[in-house]
């Protein structure tokens, strides 16, 4: 079953198109890496996929329903851009943040034993139980990433959407982080990941989508390495840049 189906989607900011006629499907259990030059519409496409934006034309379905229908709250775990670097002075603890994963299912009322177990298991799964009472704002970038993953796990999410999660994270933590993503993927989690480091994506993802406004490639990493999609996508960006001068 396709978790996400994007059909001929177009999206523009004012009169500047950023996603133009993109169609692709993400199957359950897939690990899709979204690559492309800066400003190529990767973040916008990811936001369209999980219903944070409505397409100007075309359609996006998520778990078989329109993505923007806001009924997928507990099925999608979203790790926004820059969480690793964002300075958050809010005195919230790791456990409090991970508990939020249960909120879509329980906006009011006491947490049940199931809720509490889900939170503790999520902390355990990403190995941050020992950080549970620390402030999120005082953690390192890599630790903070794990808090957001744990929040998605606590929600029992089936889909993890990550937007350049390891920017500003040291190399060692990055490696461990991608190993964790692979483990979760093996356990059945569908993952869509935006990553600027193409080497990392081709190593860890099971499918690649190469984007620069239009979709230049969609297929497995091995084929991606053999095609000129990357050069085409990035070459385009360069010529656009030169036109602007």
């Amino acid at each position: 079953m396709a978790v996400i189906e994007v059909r001929d989607v177009r999206f523009a900011y004012a009169d500047r198109p950023v996603v133009d006629g993109v169609s692709l499907a993400v199957e359950a259990g897939e690990f899709l890496g979204l690559v492309g030059p800066n400003g190529s519409g990767k973040t916008t496409l990811l936001e369209l996929m999980i219903g944070l934006r409505q397409p100007d034309s075309g359609s996006v379905s998520l778990f078989g329903a329109p993505a923007a229908s806001a009924t997928h709250g507990d099925r999608v775990g979203y790790v926004p851009q820059d969480v690793a670097n964002a300075k958050n002075e809010m005195p919230i603890t790791v456990r409090e943040a991970v508990r939020m994963g249960r909120y879509p299912q329980k906006l009011v009322g006491r947490f049940s034993e199931t809720d509490r177990t889900a939170v503790e298991e999520a902390l355990e799964r990403v190995e941050i139980t020992d950080l549970a009472d620390r402030r999120v704002g005082r953690l390192s970038g890599g630790q903070r990433q794990r808090v957001f993953i744990a929040r998605a796990l606590a929600a029992d999410a089936d889909l993890l959407a990550l937007d350049e999660p390891t920017v500003g994270v040291d190399a060692e933590s990055r490696g461990a982080f991608y190993d964790l993503l692979n483990e979760l993927n093996e356990d059945g989690m569908t993952i869509v990941l935006i990553e600027h480091d193409i080497g990392v994506v081709t190593t860890h993802a099971s499918k690649i989508a190469c984007l620069n406004r239009e979709l230049f490639f969609h297929g497995d990493p091995e084929t991606f390495a053999e095609t000129d999609a990357l050069g085409d996508a990035y070459g385009d960006a360069q010529s656009i840049l030169q036109h602007n001068h």
Binding site: L52, A70, D74, P80, M100, Y103, P104, K106, L107
Partner: peptide, 22 residues
């Protein structure tokens, strides 16, 4: 009554939207 959505939005507004919170 609104404590949970309010704290979610305060911590991570985009995440809250992705979680289906208005």
């Amino acid at each position: 009554v609104a404590y949970r959505p309010l704290i979610y939005i305060t911590f991570d507004e985009v995440g809250a939207r992705a979680a289906g919170i208005s």
